[in-house]
Simulated scan of single mutants.
Amino acid sequence: MTVTTRDVWLPVPAEELTGLPEDFTYRFWDGGPDFPADPADCVFYAVPYLKAPEVCVRPLARMTSVRVVQTLTAGVEHVSDAVARLPGNTLLCNARGVHDASTAELALTLILASLRGVPDFVRHQDAGEWRQEFRPALADKSVLIVGYGSIGGAVEDRLAPFECAAVTRVARTARGTARGPVHALGELPRLLPEADVVVLCTPLTESTRHLAGEDFLSRMKDGALLVNVARGPVVDTKALLAELESGRLYAALDVTDPEPLPSGHPLWRAPHVLITPHVGGPTSAFAPRARRLLVDQLRRFAEGRPLLHTVDPTG
Results as ranks from 00 to 15, higher is better:
residue 17 L to W: 11
residue 193 P to V: 13
residue 311 V to H: 05
residue 305 R to D: 15
residue 101 A to H: 07
residue 277 P to I: 02
residue 76 V to E: 01
residue 14 A to G: 01
residue 230 A to C: 12
residue 153 G to F: 07
residue 129 E to S: 12
residue 164 C to L: 12
residue 289 R to F: 12
residue 60 L to P: 14
residue 88 G to M: 10
residue 227 V to R: 11
residue 246 S to K: 07
residue 250 Y to H: 14
residue 113 A to E: 15
residue 221 K to Y: 13
residue 63 M to I: 00
residue 232 G to T: 06
residue 40 A to Q: 13
residue 45 Y to G: 07
residue 309 H to S: 09
residue 59 P to S: 03
residue 237 T to L: 12
residue 279 V to N: 02
residue 183 H to P: 10
residue 271 P to R: 07
residue 212 A to H: 02
residue 210 H to F: 03
residue 91 L to F: 01
residue 11 P to Y: 01
residue 167 V to H: 10
residue 38 D to C: 07
residue 88 G to R: 15
residue 271 P to G: 09
residue 81 D to P: 01
residue 141 K to P: 03
residue 50 L to I: 04
residue 254 D to Y: 09
residue 32 G to K: 13
residue 295 V to L: 13
residue 31 G to A: 14
residue 139 A to R: 07
residue 131 R to T: 11
residue 121 F to L: 10
residue 125 Q to S: 10
residue 14 A to C: 03
residue 174 A to P: 14
residue 73 T to Y: 04
residue 257 D to H: 15
residue 10 L to W: 13
residue 39 P to D: 12
residue 89 N to G: 09
residue 32 G to H: 10
residue 82 A to Q: 05
residue 78 H to P: 01
residue 273 V to K: 06
residue 161 P to E: 07
residue 238 K to M: 08
residue 248 R to V: 02
residue 255 V to Q: 09
residue 167 V to M: 12
residue 188 L to Y: 07
residue 102 S to F: 06
residue 234 V to A: 00
residue 87 P to L: 14
residue 33 P to I: 01
residue 306 P to S: 10
residue 101 A to E: 14
residue 118 V to Q: 14
residue 240 L to P: 09
residue 97 G to E: 06
residue 247 G to E: 06
residue 74 A to N: 15
residue 139 A to H: 04
residue 21 P to V: 02
residue 47 V to Q: 04
residue 167 V to P: 08
residue 22 E to Y: 08
residue 203 P to S: 05
residue 313 P to K: 01
residue 184 A to T: 05
residue 308 L to Y: 10
residue 262 P to F: 00
residue 234 V to W: 01
residue 220 M to Q: 14
residue 49 Y to R: 00
residue 69 V to H: 04
residue 300 R to G: 03
residue 231 R to H: 09
residue 263 S to G: 09
residue 168 T to V: 15
residue 34 D to V: 03
residue 121 F to W: 12
residue 275 I to M: 02
residue 194 E to T: 09
residue 27 R to G: 08
residue 281 G to V: 05
residue 268 W to E: 02
residue 244 L to D: 05
residue 6 R to I: 08
residue 87 P to V: 12
residue 294 L to V: 06
residue 308 L to A: 11
residue 251 A to Y: 07
residue 158 R to K: 08
residue 132 Q to W: 15
residue 124 H to Y: 15
residue 180 G to E: 10
residue 198 V to E: 05
residue 112 L to W: 04
residue 102 S to T: 01
residue 97 G to A: 06
residue 95 A to P: 02
residue 151 I to A: 02
residue 296 D to S: 14
residue 60 L to S: 13
residue 40 A to N: 13
residue 82 A to C: 11
residue 270 A to R: 08
residue 193 P to N: 13
residue 20 L to S: 01
